[in-house]
Design a protein around this nucleic acid. Structure first.
Length: 417
RNA sequence: CGGAGUGUGGUGUAACGGCUAACAUUCUGGUUUUGGGUACCAGCGACUCAGGGUUCGAAUCCCUGCAUCUCGACCA
């Protein structure tokens, strides 16, 4: 449902200076513009504008996951020790980023680092036969990771939401087919985020059931990974597996590869039967024999995507949101004594289902423009006595410098409504 | 977890070991203004991260802790 609002009602406000304890561009801009609030290092709250963006990002992901057969669920953030013991991952020596806590009776609990074992246990309740497969549950859930060092604003957090989809297949062939579909879905997702041009399918270390996993890496200096990019093939190789052997396998010449800094905005990998074996998730095949379910996992961090968009698509004045995730489609700015006219446009836009932020504040034109640039809504529409004299509304895209005078009808056409 | 830096009003900065801790911004009231953070007047707001120490005297020097940032390591 389209949700518009008046800026005078928005409880957050912009600030001129970024806090001195933030160096990362994403955090500086998001805090200046009032999208997020820092609770502590690596832990950020999402305020109205930030939550809208986050929800939009999740909506895009949700649509693409549903298209490939995903079914949304929500698992729990509190996990019992027994869930992790079969794979030895309760041990701090194995997983060193646990947050652990206790019930009043001293029973140990963990705050979810990830959900492979937890979901595998759930699926044991429902998977009996080959007829029950495949299944592709996914969720948006908070993960807690006790990182030794949080960094780069919202790029590497100790508490963050992750979309994690898990595939449960009969065998490797079925898994491989789905894996390919998921890979394509990911490509589509980053395209829709406006990150398509700078995001590379990247070969990374695979673990025990496949040669490599695939990461989606977006080129940015704010990233912490080093990858080698092949522009022609639009693929890359993570430094951690960048060997002559790997290049030979991909049929790539080393001279075509360019070193880049990048951030991992997604990761898909084949789990095989590691978890299904350990937790005894089996099914009866057509011959009535027991087999282990073949698994894969597919992650995206919506918060990190948000940070990556800010890092990638901003300028000296502020953020430039792509339409797919922008908090509002239109920033309607009224200047001077044009309340009635502004109200009319505002209502008309709402009628058409276009989300609009109406800057009805009693502030100077300059400060409104500065705020609009900072907040980064893609379409800016100014209504003032001056614009009305000239014949209507002044329209400008956030990423363009020239504005033009249009009438209301033309505005709707421009917005495809 | 190892190394480096930084902690002063809500925010950003300033202040020689010595005056009532200053300026800008935000906020409140007012005048003005109204197309790129409009100008002006008045006001609110910090016992300078915490705890010790040195000193006649500490925001300032020393120690410990905590927080934060950053480089590195780590990222199952």
């Amino acid at each position: 449902m389209a949700l518009s609002m008046k800026q005078s009602q928005l409880f957050t406000k912009t600030r001129k200076e970024a806090p001195s304890d933030e160096v990362a561009k994403n955090a500086q801009l998001l805090i200046k513009a009032g999208f997020i609030y820092k609770e502590m290092a690596g832990v950020y709250a999402y305020l109205p504008l930030g939550l809208k963006v986050l929800n939009n990002i999740m909506s895009v992901i949700r649509e693409e996951m549903n298209k490939i057969g995903g079914q949304e669920i929500t698992l729990t953030a509190l996990q019992q020790r027994e869930t992790w013991e079969p794979t030895n991952q309760w041990d701090d020596a194995e997983v060193d980023i646990w947050f652990k806590t206790k019930l009043k009776n001293d029973t140990e609990l963990g705050l979810a680092v990830t959900h492979e074992p937890a979901l595998t246990k759930v699926m044991k309740d429902f998977v009996r036969s080959y007829r029950d497969l495949p299944a592709y549950p996914y969720q948006f859930q908070t993960k807690f990771r006790n990182e030794l060092r949080a960094k780069s604003g919202i790029m590497r957090c100790r508490e963050f939401i992750m979309k994690d989809l898990y595939s449960f297949s009969k065998n490797k062939d079925d898994h491989d087919a789905f894996y390919e579909k998921a890979k394509q879905a990911y490509v589509t997702i980053y395209d829709r985020f406006g990150l398509g041009d700078t995001t590379y399918l990247t070969y990374a270390s695979g673990g025990m059931f496949s040669k490599f996993s695939h990461e989606f890496q977006t080129i940015t200096d704010a990233g912490e990974d080093i990858i080698y990019v092949h522009e022609g093939k639009k693929i890359a190789v993570n430094k951690e597996v960048y060997t002559d052997e790997m290049l030979a396998e991909l049929g790539i010449d080393k001279s075509d590869m360019v070193e880049k800094k990048a951030v991992e905005v997604g990761n898909i990998f084949t789990l095989g039967t590691r978890f299904s074996d350990a937790l005894e998730l089996t099914f009866d095949n057509e011959s009535g024999e027991k087999e282990s379910v073949f698994m894969g996992s597919y992650g995206i961090g919506p918060g990190r995507v948000m940070g990556t968009i800010v890092e990638t698509l901003s300028d000296d004045h502020g953020i430039i949101w792509p339409e797919s995730v922008a908090p509002f489609a239109v920033h309607l700015i009224q200047i001077g004594n044009v309340n009635e006219q502004a109200e009319k446009i505002y209502n008309d836009l709402m009628q058409k289902g276009i989300e609009v932020l109406l800057d009805d504040r009693d502030a100077s034109a300059g400060s409104k423009f500065a705020d609009a640039d900072l907040i980064g809504i893609p379409h800016r529409v100014v209504i003032s006595e001056k614009s009305l004299e000239k014949g209507g509304l002044e329209y400008k895209k956030r990423n363009e410098s020239d504005s033009k005078i249009i009438n209301e009808k033309e505005l709707f056409e421009m917005l495809n409504k």
